[in-house]
């Protein structure tokens, strides 16, 4: 294997890890709690911008090459921690606008509108995050401290990404297996019944929006620190549907399903198209990417809505025998209820 190929594959593994974190975050929100967060890419973007602004020096240091707010020149890992924090905090205003009072279908519309507003704002306010050009020269973590070859640095960054994946897996697994996760799945099925049982569905959804937002922010921070540039064209609203497609293809409500989806859609489809011979007008292959991704989404929604690895059933074994009380015979009850 040539060193160029190894470099390419290690880079691909880093992107897979970054997508995995984002998809597990979306799985918490959409797969578990049923929130149609069509603004999900904004959480990743916010994390990306936050990491960039925390890592960059003040704009003057670059001779006015770009304009932005802040530039705090914070050392690793503070930009990444800041990215996760900003992604989580962004969930609060988004949740207050889109989660409370709105039905699920209107929530989706509100989220999509918020996504469009955020892109417009980032492009129009050039002093905020350098407008449509976006930010560049974002320092990579540990550069200047470790002195290695580009391939060696890729291995270091892959280790960092793997550590973040492990953290994301621990959060997502902890939530999905816990009584809190069970409540989220209940909210997904019937908000009114959850409220009638004494839980506040808005508060539950807000909590998971924050948790998922933090993971999206972390993935955005990692992505920006790896590619060292970030602009509005990197996080247009269709990117949200890339994550949704990955989750629906792989299987929502299942961490393994999310991982499979991350491998098949953002890496598999997008990377496979890079190796196609050029044909048609310039940019045609990029457009075809979206056609294939859209077709995948529709096919799975029609024929396999639970994905390749569906959510697992939680089975509990029978506990101790009943201490007392009136019993109805099982056979009689089955006759009454028509159960198997």
């Amino acid at each position: 294997m040539t060193s160029g190929l190894v470099y390419y594959l290690s880079g691909l593994a880093i992107l897979l890890g970054i997508n995995l974190i984002a998809i597990w975050g979306l799985d918490l929100q959409f797969g578990l709690a049923g929130i149609n967060n069509f603004a999900y890419i904004v959480f990743q973007a916010a994390g990306g911008y936050a990491a960039a602004l925390f890592a960059l020096k003040p704009a003057k240091a670059y001779g006015g090459f770009e304009t932005y707010l802040g530039g705090f020149n914070l050392p690793f890992p503070l930009p990444l921690i800041g990215a996760a924090a900003v992604g989580g905090l962004l969930a609060v205003p988004v949740g207050l606008i889109a989660i409370r009072r709105l039905r699920a279908d209107y929530q989706a519309m509100a989220m999509l509108v918020l996504s469009l507003i955020a892109t417009g704002l980032a492009e129009a306010q050039t002093g905020l995050v350098n407008g449509p050009t976006g930010l560049a020269l974002i320092p990579r973590p540990l550069v200047g401290i470790v002195h290695v070859t580009p391939l060696g640095y890729n291995w270091i960054f892959l280790g960092l990404t793997a550590g973040c994946c492990a953290l994301a897996w621990w959060v997502a697994r902890g939530i999905s297996r816990s009584p809190f996760g069970r409540l989220l799945r209940a909210v997904r099925d019937s908000e009114s019944a959850v409220a009638a049982l004494g839980r506040n569905p808005d508060a539950l959804r807000m909590k998971v929006l924050i948790a998922g937002g933090a993971l999206a922010g972390l993935s955005g921070g990692l992505l920006v620190e790896y590619v060292t540039a970030w602009g509005p064209s990197s996080w247009l609203y269709p990117e949200t549907f890339l994550f949704f497609t990955a989750l629906i293809v792989g299987g929502k409500g299942n961490l393994a399903g999310g991982a499979l989806g991350a491998l098949l859609v953002p890496i598999g489809i997008v990377e496979a198209s890079r190796h196609l011979p050029a044909f048609g007008y310039p940019g045609m292959i990029d457009s075809l990417d979206w056609v294939v991704i859209g077709a995948c989404l529709l096919v799975f929604l029609w024929f396999r809505p639970n994905g390749l690895l569906p959510e697992r059933k939680r089975v509990f074994r029978a506990g101790r025998q009943q201490a007392g009380g009136t019993q109805v015979s099982g056979a009689f009850a089955q006759r009454l209820t028509g159960s198997r």
Partner: peptide, 16 residues
């Protein structure tokens, strides 16, 4: 009847 369809019967009771 307003049950949590994606939860098992036992899980429905636990949420209760």
């Amino acid at each position: 009847a307003n049950v949590f369809g994606g939860l098992t019967v036992l899980e429905n009771l636990l949420v209760g």
